[in-house]
Design a protein around this nucleic acid. Sequence first.
DNA 1: GATGAATGAGGATTCATTCAT
DNA 2: TATGAATGAATCCTCATTCAT
Lengths: 186, 186, 186, 186
Amino acid sequence: MRDKTDQIIRAAINVFVKKGFLQATTQEIAKEADVAEVTLYRKFSTKQNLFETVIKKVLENQFQTKIIKIAEENTDSFFLKILDDRLETLSKNHKMIKMLLAESLMGNLSNDLNFPVLIFNGLKKGIQLHFDCMNINANVELVAQQIGGILLSNVLFINGAPYFELTHEEKKVILNHHLQSLKANL
Amino acid sequence: MRDKTDQIIRAAINVFVKKGFLQATTQEIAKEADVAEVTLYRKFSTKQNLFETVIKKVLENQFQTKIIKIAEENTDSFFLKILDDRLETLSKNHKMIKMLLAESLMGNLSNDLNFPVLIFNGLKKGIQLHFDCMNINANVELVAQQIGGILLSNVLFINGAPYFELTHEEKKVILNHHLQSLKANL
Amino acid sequence: MRDKTDQIIRAAINVFVKKGFLQATTQEIAKEADVAEVTLYRKFSTKQNLFETVIKKVLENQFQTKIIKIAEENTDSFFLKILDDRLETLSKNHKMIKMLLAESLMGNLSNDLNFPVLIFNGLKKGIQLHFDCMNINANVELVAQQIGGILLSNVLFINGAPYFELTHEEKKVILNHHLQSLKANL
Amino acid sequence: MRDKTDQIIRAAINVFVKKGFLQATTQEIAKEADVAEVTLYRKFSTKQNLFETVIKKVLENQFQTKIIKIAEENTDSFFLKILDDRLETLSKNHKMIKMLLAESLMGNLSNDLNFPVLIFNGLKKGIQLHFDCMNINANVELVAQQIGGILLSNVLFINGAPYFELTHEEKKVILNHHLQSLKANL
DNA sequence: GATGAATGAGGATTCATTCAT
DNA sequence: TATGAATGAATCCTCATTCAT
């Protein structure tokens, strides 16, 4: 039984990512999951509910931050690791992210699943922690916005290769650029 | 006759902004425009077509940049004016922007209407121009991404008051913060 | 003004023949006639009316029989000339005929425009006349049906070249075949 | 479940025969079948599809010929039986036939459902078979056309009572007439 | 006489969801 | 638990026709 549930969730992820919430149909999801459409309703009662379940699952599994663990490292290392880690994750889940952003923007996601908000709050908390550790007195809000902006622009303004496919050197250039920017206001 | 067309466009803007492309119905638009649904089809032939017409119009009227005009000013002034101008516009059209972003992310917008792409390319061109004027040798792509990120984060991470409602002083703090960041890599 | 009316009728013939009554749209006819859609309504008040006008016109111009003129010729000549004349006309107006038949079958044509009925009655009258002249005592109804059948089968069962494109010899074979059949019951 | 499907098919036959393909509405069919309109779409996916399914079914059930079985009988018997059998069937399904013909003429039927073509080919095959058996050397094409014509004229030129309601004597007159015609060219 | 603008009515089709087994 | 069958509600769109100029 767990089996069918998993099949449905996997299928739902695919279809939602490919089509978005509104254009995904329970029919297609059921078909992709190789399950009767009703089965899906038995388990999730509602398309919206299935969607949220899926999102929750994804958010837990793919986008956990370890930001707190590194809060105590020195500032350069802290920023570099955050940026590298997040850019890696975002670029690897590009399509998923786009969908999450889109659905957040359309208001289809309850606040505890709102992707940009989650990112932003996560960043703020981590940065606050680090600044406390390091006794830095700077505008947490703005720094968080700055880092968030860097991340977003990597999702929305992509031309060339995604971050995770860059060479070590190329990544270093980018990371360093952003690091300088961030340190300019400390 | 222009009259009804305008009514329709105005209504369409409202409804599309409020609901997004998929959930907006031609019926609702017609009703809000106080026009028979058919009239709308006579004039725009298709919901998609109406949508694109509306977007095009909005993009022309609301989001024209004067970035080129200020490319020759000194770097501080250049960055500050861009940021201030864009933040003002974006924050004033917050809901519209969200819709534009969402639809772009969902792939409902042909490339010449793709909002983030348009912003990013506009920024790049302006920055390139300025750097040429000033004989600055820096990574245009990354600077554009940086500015783009700042703008995006103001759309997506808003908690408090929107930019355009801030006091002169508050704006100054923000602008200055970002200016320092930008100059760190020149 | 006659001008526009004629344009409309010509266009209507084309479109009705191409699409049939139901699938022809007044829009398409107007466009093909290079006339505003309303103009068509000014002149014909109704799609049905336009259709009937067109049919009437076509029936008068294209399908007039001279069957009465030849009623006095000898029987062989009479039958041969009828068959040849009708087959020539029908094969030259193949698409039009198909449309007329179809619309008759669908009941879209008032009785005085009902194509098969018109043909059948015309045949009966001519045959009766001829039989009276020649003092032949035979079943007019059945002979008319027979000739009608020959004509219909040439419209509906066409494989090869249409009648009017055949050589003189080929036509002769066909005509003779049918002549023998017809004479078998006199 | 077969139940509802059958209800729909029966209703569809009625409505299509009464109104033709274009003017029949899925709504009316659903209503007559006492079924929700959607149910019809679940089962047949498309109005066109439903139509073709219905036609196929009708063609199989009502218009099967046993022409091959009688190919070996003597010529008189062969022709008489064909004519009688087909005239009986056609006259009993007069409205259905009219619809089938009309839709064929309008080009709404794929070739394997094209009614006149099916009839004609059936006739040709049977006649060929018979001629082979009997060592008759005659123009199969023309004979098939002739028989086809007889049948068609009985569908299209009806005034009086339909064939199947005639007395034995009346039928005999008609059949004999046509038999003489047919034999005239052997 | 001709037309641009507008519309009421209706049609096929799709979707999320429920019922009964 | 799983599902085949059924559906109410809605959506985009088309068409013949009328109004006002």
